[in-house]
């Protein structure tokens, strides 16, 4: 697919599945940078001593986890003299954005799959700051279903769920409870002895990783698989996705709307 016109800013929704889930968020960013260079798309670079391509990802996905809802915001450069590829144009449409999405989809490594893309406006808050919670499906093993159901109920009843974790090289104790918005045992997992949890975890006051949630439930639980099903932006009590499957930006959380609101 050839790309004719580029929107200056673009949001891409993609999934991360299969073996590539064992790579880190940093590896993920590098894969995007390579794909953008191969596509000869004129990504904008930051200023300064060590210029970086202007790619902004939503909340980092922990290494090992899959996701059905990852996002990255791209910013393209206003064409320079040397540019030989497509150029940024104010006339770029939603279809142009989709064309960029499919071009990148073909160049990204297996396991990173572009779902959709849409032009976005300028916004002062990053995607990372806007996301308020994430929905997870977490497959675990290490105890019976009855035991697991009991443990989950105990956790939900507790006022606080302290866990130790490392932050910037120091051991700290954090309370998980305020971040657990919902949690239930859905039933058996993909293999015998595994069970599936549904969880919605808030990003504030602190983000919770699936492995940390498990430690909060019981030290005996082992993580088998984890899939981030959705990332949500809370907007006046409504949960909205940063970009829906079908490429729509909705509500006040949508950067376009946010921009016009200011």
């Amino acid at each position: 697919m050839t790309v004719q016109r580029l929107p200056e800013r673009l949001r891409v929704r993609y999934t991360k599945t299969g073996r590539i889930r064992y790579t880190s968020q940093r590896d993920n960013a590098r894969a995007w940078e390579r794909a953008l260079r191969r596509a000869r798309l004129p990504i904008a670079y930051s200023e300064g001593f060590n210029p970086r391509p202007l790619l902004a990802f939503s909340l980092a996905l922990p290494t090992g986890c899959e996701s059905g809802a990852e996002y990255t915001d791209l910013r393209f450069a206003i064409p320079g003299e040397r540019s030989i590829g497509p150029v940024v144009s104010p006339e770029a449409t939603a279809d142009d954005a989709l064309a960029v999405g499919s071009l990148l989809d073909a160049l990204l490594p297996d396991g990173l799959t572009v779902v959709t893309a849409a032009p976005i406006g300028e916004d002062r808050t990053s995607l990372q700051e806007q996301v308020t919670s994430c929905s997870w499906i977490v497959e675990v093993t290490g105890m019976t279903e009855t035991e697991l159901v009991e443990r989950v109920a105990t956790l939900l009843d507790a006022d606080s769920v302290p866990i130790e974790r490392e932050r910037k090289g120091r051991r700290v104790t954090d309370d998980l409870r305020p971040s657990i918005q919902s949690l239930d045992v859905e039933g058996g997992g993909s293999s015998p002895g595994t069970f599936r949890l549904n969880a919605e975890l808030a990003t504030k006051p602190r983000g919770v990783r699936p492995a940390e949630l498990l430690r909060g439930i019981s030290p005996n639980l082992r993580l088998v698989r984890a899939n981030r099903r959705a990332q949500w932006i809370d907007s006046d009590g409504m949960r909205l996705e940063p970009l829906t499957h079908d490429g729509r930006l909705l509500g006040a959380a949508a950067p376009m709307a946010a921009e016009s609101g200011r």
Binding site: R19, I20, Y22, T23, S24, D27, T63, G64, P109, D110, G111, A211, R222, L223, V224
Partner: peptide
């Protein structure tokens, strides 16, 4: 099943271009 518990699991999965 071992890969969640080890450092840099991408070392063991191949998948290079």
């Amino acid at each position: 099943p071992l890969l969640f518990a080890v450092e840099k699991p991408a070392r063991y999965v191949g998948g290079e271009m």
